[in-house]
Design a protein around this nucleic acid. Sequence first.
RNA 1: CGGAGCGUAGCUCAGCCUGGUAGAGCAUUAGCUUUGGGAGCUAAGGGCCGUUGGUUCGAAUCCAGCCGCUCCGACCA
Length: 508
Amino acid sequence: MQRALNIARDRFADWYQAVVAGADMAESSPVRGAMVIKPWGYGVWEQIQAELDRRIKATGHENCYFPLFIPLSFIAKEADHVDGFAKEMAVVTHHRLKMIDGRLQPDPEAKLEEPLVVRPTSETIIGDAFSRWIRSHRDLPLLINQWANVVRWEMRPRLFLRTTEFLWQEGHTAHASEAEAVAETAMALEMYRSFAEDVLAMPVIAGEKPENERFPGAVATWSIEAMMQDGKALQAGTSHFLGTHFAEAQNIKFQDDAGTLTLCNTTSWGVSTRLIGGVIMTHGDDDGLRLPPAIAPRQIVVVPMLRDKPEDEHVMAYCEELVKSLSKLSAFGQPLRVLLDNKKIKSAEKRWNWVRRGAPLILEVGPRDAAGANVSMMRRDDLRDGDKVKSVIKPRQDFLENAVQLLTEIQAGLYAEAKARLDANIKTGITDWAGVENYFAGGDDDFKGWLRISWSKPTGDALEKIGAQLKALKLTIRNAPLDQPETFAKCLFTGAAGVEEILIGRAY
RNA sequence: CGGAGCGUAGCUCAGCCUGGUAGAGCAUUAGCUUUGGGAGCUAAGGGCCGUUGGUUCGAAUCCAGCCGCUCCGACCA
């Protein structure tokens, strides 16, 4: 059968790259690990930004912008933070180039007194501002967000999933009490969960990261974890309770109503362009991407079937009117995003381009459709009947009346499909290490999903040991889901009394 | 940074083992045909065969270095 892609999901890594390329979302750049995000990929990011930004503002946060460059000394202030990020830092050491021996290179005369790091995250530079902005309990809570790019010098980049430079949103807040800060962290986590599920149609498990997977410098880290179609986990968003660690390091203090100088409790939380990788690996199929309508830059694409004949004019006029009528409608609280694809390329090619890009609804309109007031409709979420492409002829008026409902159905359908996969592939009931080994035996390519097991939540060296044990099977602890039972089986690792259930699995 | 594989036309790749004038399909351009859907025929354009050096009368092909990409590890949103 002829597919829109020439690689199927059984070669998942190759398939992923084929989808990104086929959907024309991004490409690698001359700089290793840094990607060019192309209009269709960036369009998805703009939808993510727009909707998440609404939610961030609705919960009382304000947007700011902090510098890309951070004085090296700032990073050095929080010891764990240094440990976590030192190995992946881009550093600016000079401010001028000079031609020396015929080669353009940094001018030794123009060496910076203090090197600047390119932000890998902004806790330190925002903390510095917080220490100046906060004086009184009346300045709290301070709720800030920024949309920015960050740089982490990663070893093995993968488009969208792990790039040297990536785009994200980072929330940073300061609070008068620990309880308030923890509540803020929970709020952000819940915002991410609902955003992932309702907007990206990507079901996730929200929970707390174990001690050894925490953000460097955090007291506690929570995450949402999504299951990709190869069974691996993708950490899709994080929320960190930083306690007073950064407040201590950066002197973020306030006078309470009794006049006592007190350290703030701070939080930070973020999601990145990685979400786009998650959407691809959650919803893509062997014909390319399938975009949830809520984030599709174009939800309906109209492809006129032109043949350089006089009736083309009528077809175009009909299509223009159709697009105009559709554009008056609203779905997911926003005006419908409709495109008339009038590029001067072959119609058949247009169709397959939109299939690969994952436009939720593709309408083909030929002379006979135009004459009969019909449209030929393809649903990207339900493209084929066996090997054949399902193209359904519908009266134009019916389509207009049902378009919004249809998009809502597609959104729900993609979620339901992914949710069923997630639920079916979290295995419970394994109670000893031999069972884990046995379950994850066999090839890396086998679909395994995750295990939900009980443990005694060891810390320190005991936890390190478990980490190493898991690592031998390429497993990690993903998180301890928020939703916990009343009673627990014995700890799978130690045999001690269980106190918590955790998810383990392979991850990106 | 370690292990494996790969760099040949815009794209996907063959040719390399066994050295002897640079190939195919798709895409592009032109003409004709076709017209409910990824069309057919004919013709044309398009290559420092990643890069530097070595071996050789002769290198896409053999050898070495370098650069880049992909996969597997270590790192990670």
